[in-house]
Design a protein around this nucleic acid. Structure first.
Lengths: 138, 138
DNA sequence: ATTATAATTACGACCAGGTGCAATAACAAT
DNA sequence: ATTGTTATTGCACCTGGTCGTAATTATAAT
């Protein structure tokens, strides 16, 4: 894994705890919540304290080894090599579909032009109503 | 306030605690954090329990009497009659500027067309780099 | 292989936010 | 005005997440 190299190059120590957490996020293609990560870690290496896990995740995020995005009121962790995309989640039926990465391009452009801000939309999770639920509700 | 009427029509009781919380949100044009709301409530009506405040805010949000948006890691409450707009926050200098309401219109349209989802962007808070900080950093 | 040292860990304490429950109070009907 | 009913409150407690600290351990230097 390239991120292990990056990680050590930045002067951080590769402890077994950190390695395990990296492995879990690397191997699991699903979207991992903190809860799941804590469970998996403690299954494979009992005694690891929750604060270690929280601090490791924070560090991995800072070093770019892990991406964190927000889904509803939870956070989700995933490997950066996954394709970047956004998510559409239906607030009625819960269905979630992936959404094209550059859907926000026009917004990024107009914010740049009008306000001078540079915004980078990454892994945005949008809550709304899907086609079916819109039909049923109205 | 129209929301008091709406609120009672939906069958909820208008307790002094609820009235006070509504008043505070209605009168304050600034963006109120939960912390501030708790402080103000307990100043004017000592003894009100924090759980009452949390539950009231949740209920007011559900009934549409109050809007809740997210700024960084905090939540902010405001009156629905306020003009809708988004926020641009610079992650370097912290500066925050208001952003036109319909900046997301093209995204809403293309998500509707491509995926059939209906997304309503309300009070979105975007973190990025402002003009000055972009110049300095690069 | 040993040792030095600086980062990292587990622990415990703490805080914000949330929940179940018995006591209380708002409102409707008389 | 009184009463009954049901929502709402305050309380106690729980949980997730954060932080300071002493003990531990990964790594580099010898």
């Amino acid at each position: 894994m390239s991120c292990v190299v990056t990680f050590k190059e930045k002067g951080f120590k590769l402890t077994p705890q950190r390695k395990l957490i990296m492995d879990i996020i690397h191997d699991d293609e699903a979207h991992l919540t903190i809860e799941k990560i804590i469970t998996y870690v403690q299954e494979r290496m009992p005694g690891v304290h929750k604060s270690t896990i929280y601090r490791t995740l924070e560090l991995l995020e800072k070093t770019g080894c892990v991406y964190k995005s927000e889904l509803g009121n939870q956070f989700i962790y995933h490997h950066p090599e996954e394709g970047h995309h956004h998510h559409l989640v239906c607030r009625k039926c819960g269905k979630s579909i992936d959404c094209d990465e550059d859907i926000f391009a026009p917004v990024e452009r107009s914010i740049g032009a009008k306000y001078g801000f540079h915004i980078d939309f990454k892994h945005v999770i949008m809550s709304g109503l899907c086609k079916e639920c819109r039909r049923k509700t109205s």
